[in-house]
């Protein structure tokens, strides 16, 4: 038996040696020839009957050893064939990784909304709430309560659309000031954003645009506080270097009133085409709330002071993104809109 197993092992070693099995098919056939049901090793097992009983354990051990060895040989070579086949398959699967990706692009948010959102974030962090008043307003809220009586020349500053009776399309979000102050006692810190309307249409004026009114009413509010708040707004909305400048102006609902300029971010204040060489860009109007306006809303002007400011959202968007014509903001060309990612 020992000799037989030795012979088979040597024969198999020879046949498995280099060039012995070129293909996986040949290997499977060879495996069948030795380990299959009628294979050579199985035939040897059948010969166990003829082995004298006392030699059987040793013969069985030798046979088991041979079988184990043969199986291991075949397994190793099979694994090798599998590895080669996979490698060949993978080698054929090379792709051009620079081809375009497939994905669904998200949408975009309107630049005016982007600005509005940013303002809301800046100011809500300072304790401001957001109040949205009606767009179709009574003359009282848009003008009279703001110290702009009928036939006041200040009405010329805002060419107003009327819709009948005492109703008009609000020309400023300042109307929201009054509605809040009527209902709420100080301390008040609100922003009132929304659509406003003026009869004006060209590259820098749109008959409909957006404003955001800010209002603070409390004890001991000063012009310096207004400056501090707006400085912070300028730094956050634009750059940390952006400065604000106050200069005297006139609005019937504030006294003193100021026009607020920002240092031109394009030239850093040196003067350029965008700021018309002045180094400053006019962005908003503001001031200390007029005593009459407080009194109109039942707030004692001897106890409380406050400030208000009005920001044009389109104007900020145009400055921030370098948009040259306000009309682009309302054409809704998707090539324009898609540039303003969420």
């Amino acid at each position: 038996m020992k000799q037989q197993t030795q012979e088979i092992r040597e024969e198999l070693e020879r046949r498995l040696a280099a060039g012995g099995c070129a293909t996986r098919k040949e290997l499977v056939e060879l495996k069948l020839e030795y380990l299959g049901k009628g294979g050579k090793i199985s035939a040897l097992s059948k010969g166990m009957r003829d082995v004298p009983p006392e030699e059987r354990p040793e013969a069985g051990r030798l046979l088991g050893e041979l079988r184990g060895w043969a199986e291991e040989q075949f397994d190793t070579r099979e694994q090798e064939f599998k590895r080669l086949e996979l490698a060949a398959k993978v080698a054929g699967e090379r792709i051009d990784v620079t081809m375009p990706a497939k994905f669904s692009a998200g949408g975009s948010v309107h630049p005016v909304t982007l600005v509005r959102r940013e303002l809301e974030e800046i100011f809500s962090g300072m304790g401001f709430n957001i109040y949205e008043g009606p767009e179709i307003e009574r003359d009282y809220y848009n003008f009279q309560a703001l110290n702009i009586p009928a036939d006041h020349p200040a009405r010329d500053m805002q060419d107003t659309f009327f819709v009948g009776g005492e109703y008009l399309l609000r020309s400023q979000t300042s109307s929201g000031q009054i509605r809040v102050m009527e209902k709420q006692a100080p301390p008040i810190k609100i922003l009132s954003p929304g659509r406003v309307y003026r009869s004006d249409s060209d590259a820098t004026h749109s008959p409909m645009f957006h404003q955001m009114e800010g209002l603070v009413v409390d004890k001991n509010i000063t012009l310096c506080d207004l400056k501090g708040i707006l400085d912070e707004f300028a730094r956050r909305m634009f750059t940390a270097e952006t400065k604000t400048r106050f200069r005297p102006s006139y609005f019937p609902f504030t006294e003193p009133s100021v026009e607020v300029d920002l240092s031109c971010k394009n030239c850093g204040g040196k003067g350029c085409r965008i700021c018309k060489g002045t180094g400053w860009i006019e962005v908003l109007g503001a001031g200390m709330v007029n005593r009459k306006v407080l009194a109109n809303c039942g707030i004692d002007p001897d106890v409380y002071t406050g400030f208000a400011f009005g920001i044009g959202l389109e104007r900020i968007a145009m400055i921030k993104y370098g948009i040259g014509d306000i009309r682009l903001l309302f054409e809704n060309d998707v090539r324009f809109l898609r540039q303003f990612r969420d």
Binding site: M126, N129, K189, D218, C224, D225, I229, E232
Partner: peptide, 12 residues
């Protein structure tokens, strides 16, 4: 610029 130095705190 001062930052509402005398005003009451409010929730925004």
């Amino acid at each position: 610029g001062t930052f509402l130095k005398n005003a009451s705190s409010t929730m925004g």
